[in-house]
């Protein structure tokens, strides 16, 4: 009788298979590294897939200049520790125009500093495949996306005519200028991610753990004031509260939750009794109906 693989073993094997398939069939792949928990899992899997070699591709961080400072510290530490090739791209046009989430709103900010910036970086380096950490359980339009998701030469996704994706046979063929976004974590759920982090002891940004942090209550959300660029509105006060984050993005667009979970088992048990989905803390998803699909069609991850 053979040992059966566990649920996590199967998910891990599937992701590793996908990583290797890209390395074998594309000439210039890149992994989008966004520093969050899903990226941490993705990075861990990439290291496993090519062991004892290093992953044969660089890691790209699209820095909006509004990430939590602790995220940037963590990113630099990981790159140093694991010795991977880190590319940081910032949309300098956006910086020159001082695009920011407060004056321009989350939509414009995200579009210019993230979506446009990503397209710039992909074009500049000529990457033909880009790994992302998106999961199908996150959002309705993501539930519809293929593991190997085709993008035309303007980086656009056409959800109405996706290539059939049969078995584990992936069609990796593209014409010059076209590219494929690849999602090795497609079939993982949020609980799988945490369970795997626990099992493999994967380092994550400390912002996921509860700590006293300076927050402002704004529009019913707890926003952490990570630096002086966040100007207080009349009546707002910064107070220290015991909070943590369920997902991480730009600090003005990512709401904290009050929590006393200071370790992984604490986070997991909190998540198990949660009554809202993780994207609820993401302000960008709620701007308009179908907004994730719209962003994705424009080239957002």
């Amino acid at each position: 009788m053979l040992a059966k693989l566990s649920h996590l073993d199967r998910l891990e094997a599937e992701a590793i298979h996908i990583f290797r398939e890209v390395a074998a069939t594309f000439s210039k792949p890149v992994m989008l590294y966004s520093i969050g928990k899903d990226s941490s899992v993705l990075l861990h899997l990439a290291m496993k897939a090519f062991y004892p070699a290093k992953p044969p591709f660089p890691f790209l961080h699209v820095d909006t200049t509004w990430k939590f400072r602790e995220m940037i510290e963590f990113r630099n530490a990981m790159a140093k520790q694991l010795g991977f090739d880190l590319i940081v791209h910032i949309n300098e046009d956006g910086v020159r125009d001082n695009i920011n989430p407060f004056d321009h709103g989350s939509n414009t900010h995200t579009h210019i500093m993230k979506t446009v910036a990503l397209r710039q970086a992909l074009d500049k380096h000529g990457f033909d495949a880009a790994f992302g950490g998106a999961r199908r359980d996150e959002e309705k339009s993501r539930a519809k996306e293929r593991i190997f998701s085709f993008r035309n030469s303007s980086h656009a996704w056409d959800p109405k005519s996706q290539r059939p994706e049969m078995w584990k046979i992936f069609n990796t063929r593209i014409l010059p200028g076209e590219s494929i976004r690849v999602f090795p974590l497609s079939n993982w759920t949020e609980i799988d991610i945490w369970q795997y982090i626990l099992q493999e002891n994967i380092p994550i940004v400390p912002l996921y753990f509860a700590k006293q942090r300076p927050v402002v209550e704004r529009d019913g959300m707890l926003i952490m004031r990570d630096d002086e660029r966040m100007v207080l509105r009349p009546g707002e006060v910064v107070e220290n509260r015991l909070v943590r984050f369920r997902t991480l993005g730009c600090y003005p667009l990512t709401a904290a939750i009050e929590s006393d979970a200071t370790d992984l088992p604490g986070i997991v048990s909190e998540m198990l009794i949660a009554r809202t989905s993780e994207r609820q803390g993401r302000l960008i998803d709620r701007d308009e109906a179908g907004s994730m699909e719209k962003k994705k069609r424009e080239g957002y991850f």
Binding site: S141, P159, K160
Partner: peptide, 22 residues
Amino acid sequence: LLVDGLEAEREQGITIDVAYRF
């Protein structure tokens, strides 16, 4: 409407592509 995640699907009330749910 929980599974028909694409705008075109919701408007037309049909399913166009496969959705994976867990």
